[in-house]
Amino acid sequence: MENRVLDLLKETEALLEGHFLLSSGKHSNRYCQCARLLQYPQKAEEVLSVVVEKLKKVDFDLIVGPAMGGIIVAYELGRQLNKPAIFTERVDGEMCLRRGFEIKAGQKVIIAEDVVTTGKSSLETSKVIEGFGGTVVGIACIADRSVEKVDLALYSAIKLNVEAYSAEECPLCKEKIPYIKPGSRNIK
C-alpha cells in the first residue's frame, strides 16, 4: 500500500524536488506539500484509509489537527472513524484552542498532521491538549519524514526518507541555489 501512497503523492505533485526552507529552519532538496494531495477528496480518502486501519486498534476519543496542515487530515480521519475532529491554531504565535472547541479532562486524543518532520507543531498542540486535561495517545499523519524519534506513537500512511540540513551545511546553499519556503509557519 505504501507504493500506492507514493504514487498518489507523485501523481498530485505533492512530492516536490528543489531547495526548500522547512518550518524547522532546516533546508531540504525534497518537500511534501500534502495540500496538493488533499485538494482531491477521493485521493485523500484513499491515502488516509491506510492511517485509519492503523488507528482502529487505538483507544481514543478525539482528533485534533494543528492549523493549517492538520485541519483536513483531522476532518478526514474523523469522518472515516466516526470520531469528532477539531483543530488548534496560532494566535500571536501561540498555539491555542478557539472557536468554541473543547477538550474534556481525561479525553484520549490523536493529533493529526499532514507531515511530521520535527514534531514541533504536534508538541505545541500536545501542550494545549494537556492544558485542558486531555491525554495525547499518538500522532496520525500522511507522511512521516522524521529523522529523530518522535516521543509519541506515530501512525503514518508513508515513511519518507528526506535529507534535511542546517543552513550552514546545506549543499544547495553552497551551490547558491535559491530556496523557497512552502510551509505556513513564520520562521524568525
Rank of each mutant, 00 (worst) to 15 (best):
E13M: 09
K56L: 13
V52C: 09
T125W: 03
L48H: 03
K181I: 05
A140Q: 09
I71E: 06
V64S: 12
Y40A: 01
V150Y: 11
L9D: 00
G25I: 10
L81N: 10
A112F: 04
E163H: 12
G138R: 07
T135I: 13
E53Q: 14
I139G: 03
I103M: 06
R36G: 00
L37N: 00
L172Q: 12
C173L: 05
E148W: 06
I86Q: 08
G25L: 10
C170K: 10
K57Q: 11
L123W: 07
R90P: 08
S156R: 01
P171Q: 06
I129E: 14
M95K: 01
C173P: 06
T117L: 03
G18Y: 09
T88A: 09
K54H: 05
E11N: 13
L9M: 03
V47T: 07
K127A: 14
V5M: 04
E102G: 10
Q33D: 06
Q39R: 15
V52H: 06
H19Y: 13
P84G: 09
E11Y: 14
D61P: 01
E175M: 12
N3V: 02
G106D: 09
E168A: 10
I63S: 08
I177R: 15
K108S: 11
F60S: 04
Y31I: 10
H19R: 12
I63L: 11
K176F: 07
G70D: 10
I139K: 02
F87D: 02
Q107H: 06
Q42D: 13
I180A: 09
A44M: 07
Y40P: 00
L172M: 15
L37D: 00
T118L: 08
T88V: 04
V150E: 05
K159I: 00
K56D: 10
I142M: 02
